[in-house]
């Protein structure tokens, strides 16, 4: 299927996608998944895989997501804290993307290859505090995502996920989706599948569209900067950083940015 497509493009004699990306033409991008295949983190990651492949089809890349964790470009992980730390240690130089654990200690530890797509407990607490400051007496809960979120093309993502899985997209599903999508974004932009090059690029140059209206990047402590949603009785009531209380464009008002110790 790939070769005839290439030939057809050549026959047109026009400028080529492949010519523009010689380094990544016809390449495999293997991604590993550590965690429960019955989790929403897994179904979210599968959704991300399907969408990464749409891009891959145009650029000559084939994405796979399997439980194999060796010889991969990145690992998506939905495992308990101790296992997560061990996983990052066992695969130095490989981006390990945490999509389910919210403990701040995992962030402040600053393992060099451990990145956190799911927001931390402190980020959520800060978002809730901002909301209470702006709306005294109101007790909203902060979340990474909500299946009824519509702005910034969120409704399209929710629709695609629901269509594919029959489920409503929860926080871990969004994080699983985002983890695969942001890796594929870097693979395309950096024209590499090399894990350590991707890790460097993810830390330094990510400007990811998480369908939350802002470009998302990683903090020094490995946490993905991101707006959060405020939810009351399962209804979205606002977004954080909360306008009027914090600078809506400065995502670092949510949670710590730095490592607990110098690296």
């Amino acid at each position: 299927m790939r070769l005839p497509k290439l030939t057809r493009t050549l026959a047109l004699g026009a400028a080529l996608a492949c010519a523009a990306h010689p380094a990544i033409a016809e390449v495999n991008v293997p991604l590993g998944f550590a965690g429960d295949p019955a989790s929403t983190a897994w179904s979210g990651a599968k959704q991300g895989l399907a969408e990464a492949q749409i891009q891959g089809d145009f650029l000559g890349q084939t994405y796979t997501l399997t439980p194999r964790l060796t010889e991969v470009s990145a690992i998506i992980a939905a495992v308990p804290p101790a296992a997560l730390k061990a996983l990052a240690l066992a695969h130095p130089g490989v981006p390990v993307l945490n999509v389910s654990r919210t403990e701040d200690a995992l962030r402040s530890d600053c393992q060099p290859n451990l990145l956190h797509v799911i927001p931390s407990d402190q980020m959520r607490a800060d978002a809730q505090a901002q909301w209470q400051k702006a709306h005294p007496g109101s007790g909203a809960e902060a979340r990474a995502w909500h299946p009824n979120f519509e702005k910034y093309a969120a409704s399209q993502l929710n629709h695609r996920y629901a269509e594919a899985t029959g489920k409503a997209m929860d926080d871990a599903a969004w994080a699983g989706w985002a983890a695969v999508k942001l890796v594929s974004d870097m693979v395309a932009r950096e024209e590499t599948t090399d894990a350590s090059k991707l890790l460097e690029a993810l830390r330094a140059r990510l400007a990811f569209d998480g369908q939350k209206g802002q470009d998302l990047s990683f903090r020094d402590n490995g946490q993905l900067r991101q707006p959060l949603l405020l939810v009351e009785t399962n209804k979205i009531v606002g977004e954080a950083p909360v306008r009027g209380v914090a600078d809506a464009e400065n995502l670092d008002s949510l949670g710590p940015v730095a490592c607990a110790r110098a690296h």
Partner: peptide, 8 residues
């Protein structure tokens, strides 16, 4: 004839 990667 071409797919050009641009910003987000």
């Amino acid at each position: 004839v071409a797919n050009i990667l641009v910003g987000a």
